[in-house]
Design a protein around this nucleic acid. Structure first.
Lengths: 237, 237
DNA sequence: AACCACCTTACTTTTACCTTACATTTGCTA
DNA sequence: TAGCAAATGTAAGGTAAAAGTAAGGTGGTT
């Protein structure tokens, strides 16, 4: 695995692969899934690809230049009319003009088939890193990332918005990550001086937070209850 | 000239080229200057390169893997300790391990010598575009483009003029694109030190901006309210 | 089994924000 | 510098999402 857990949030990105050869499509898909990407769309034609893009708003595209209904370049132009995610071109033809046309249009990278699978993965990461660089401090859990500045959590390819109170509670817990934080401490940090009477409200918030960050909210593995003492946010070291 | 005036600001970026062969150094430099780049630094050794980087803070680097005092990879690691500009590796050796090592370290691109000059230029632009897109005063949303220089937004074939305050607000939001910007931050940036009491005014501006950029202003998809936290301008990616 | 601490859900209340219409200010032009 | 239009600011009623509440449920402990 590349980059370890630090690049987890990049693997949440939705990728679309467009190629007319089913074999190539399968190969790239399994390559991506093996690498830990959760959401991979496949299309064999330009038409299909455009529909998928408008519907699913992918974060990255791998486009073959040869397609049954028009070339990848025209697909690229069509996409760029309304979307701006990064694109890597793939081609069997080793023609310099092709390569230059692809990059000239504004593509992010260009690879010639056959390619080293590893090189494709590394180039994808290079592009994703630059395109989606997280200059925000991320809370990285195993299978979930939380961005408190953006007020979102990402889990299993889905993004959940966090509310103001949820952000406040999480940031309180995170400031004492892996340590028990008492209910009183949390209430004090969230509701200030007049903090009494909010215990149940806090409980409801914890419940709602778990829905957004836990893989199995009813048996939490990140936001842990320590009975009689408080809560603890487990963050991988 | 590539991309016309839209990419002009990318040519302002400072580029450093590191190669032990003076000929290659000269060749790349003149290539870059011909393309319109104004600032090109040259270094032949790792040591020289590091000094130039710390002094001039370049925006992009082209590193040869073979250097007299250590390889390009160790130079890359040294640079990344304190700086984070994008890097393209260049190598004469066509060894897969080399390529994979370079990209694996976190480089942005990798080219094998000899290369097509045009391809190098195009790849440089691809990387610069992604890395420094925030400087681009043209905001491309899905179905709407905003030109902050011209102070207009285009949507559904119609062009809307933007007022001074609207431009200021949008540019504040865009400089933290995709991230939550607090109302206080926006007010501070628009009205300066004495910013209190303008919250409602800001609200009215937000409302007017949405009329000009959103397809459906009452359920916005670009300029998002994050209740209790602030506003966010959704830009893809 | 009864207790306790906490979970969970559905519901109510609150609040922050939207929206509209109108008032005021600004800056341009005659 | 007076008049005008455009831009900006203000106020108030309306609204939906978020926060808070309450009540029944769960599971471990004594």
């Amino acid at each position: 695995m590349m980059d370890g857990h630090r690049a987890d949030f990049l693997r949440e990105k939705k990728i679309i692969v467009v190629d007319d050869e089913p074999k190539v499509l399968e190969m790239i898909e399994s390559l991506l899934l093996d690498e830990g990407f959760c959401t991979v769309f496949k299309a064999a034609t330009q038409h299909e690809a455009l529909d998928l893009c408008t519907l699913n708003k992918p974060d990255f595209a791998i486009l073959d230049v040869m397609l049954p209904d028009g070339d990848g370049f025209s697909l690229f132009k069509a996409i760029r009319k309304s979307m701006n995610f990064p694109v890597l071109f793939l081609t069997a033809k080793d023609q310099p003009e092709d390569l230059l046309e692809g990059l000239g249009l504004g593509a992010d990278d260009y690879m010639v088939k056959p390619f080293l699978p590893r090189e494709l993965i590394l180039r994808i990461f290079a592009i994703l890193r630059r395109s989606y660089k997280a200059d925000d401090p991320l809370i990285v859990l195993q299978g979930c990332t939380i961005d408190l500045n953006k007020a979102i959590s990402c889990r299993g390819g889905r993004t959940f918005p966090l509310t103001a109170k949820e952000v406040k509670i999480l940031s309180t817990l995170y400031s004492s990550a892996n340590r028990i934080v008492t209910i009183d401490t949390i209430c004090n940090s969230v509701w200030g001086d007049n903090r009494y009477g909010y215990e149940n409200s806090l409980m409801a918030h914890i419940c709602r937070i778990r829905e957004k960050i836990e893989i199995n909210p009813s048996s939490p593995s990140f936001l842990i209850t320590v009975k009689g003492l408080g809560y603890r946010l487990n963050v991988s070291p």
